[in-house]
């Protein structure tokens, strides 16, 4: 396409096109970051070396989601969108004032673990990437038993089944 900017009409059209392309990228980036889902595991456990202790009863809510109760040793999850989040903790022990903080999660991580005791004790980092190799493995194995990768696999699978029935 030849772009000439001689007449005002052509100039306007060119500007509109540039604006549209820019808008396209802006919106894409916005939904990419803003819509990105993360699973946060909220953890209330003692440290192995007892450098920090679990909170004895609290209610935690992230952003404006419904709050959940935690006792020592509890772990629950919250699914959030975007990277910047607010956490609000109210303690069952009414003498301790409510705690509020904001934190950011890395864009590329799907699932992460947030330790409330660590956060309260000011130990960095209180957010860690969560990988559960065992869990993922068993999950995949179960799934692959049902959904075959290709027609050939399915065919093999069926033949094996026949074989087992036959023997």
């Amino acid at each position: 396409m030849k772009i000439s900017l001689k007449t005002p009409k052509e100039k306007r059209r060119f500007l509109i096109r540039i604006a549209l392309v820019l808008l396209y990228f802006c919106v894409t980036i916005f939904v990419l970051f803003n819509g990105r889902g993360h699973t946060i595991l909220i953890d209330n456990k003692d440290a192995d070396d007892l450098s920090y202790e679990a909170v004895d009863g609290m209610e935690v809510s992230i952003d404006s989601q419904e709050s959940a109760e935690y006792w020592p040793g509890d772990r629950d999850k919250a699914v959030v969108r975007g990277q910047k989040h607010k956490i609000r903790i109210s303690f069952f022990d009414e003498e301790i004032p409510e705690f509020e903080a904001t934190f950011t999660v890395p864009f590329s991580v799907d699932m992460l673990i947030l330790s409330v005791p660590k956060m309260l004790a000011g130990i960095e980092p209180f957010i860690e990437t969560f990988v559960a190799p065992d869990f993922v493995d068993t999950f995949e194995k179960e799934e692959s038993a049902e959904s075959f990768d290709s027609f050939e696999d399915m065919y093999d699978g069926l033949q094996q089944e026949d074989y087992y029935i036959g023997s």
Binding site: V27, L32, G35, R36, G37, R81
Partner: peptide, 18 residues
């Protein structure tokens, strides 16, 4: 694949598809 949830996921899909 990118884990974009909700209507933002739909907008993202539409933007990739356009």
């Amino acid at each position: 694949d990118w884990g974009i949830a909700g209507w933002r996921g739909l907008v993202f899909a539409a933007l990739v598809g356009t």
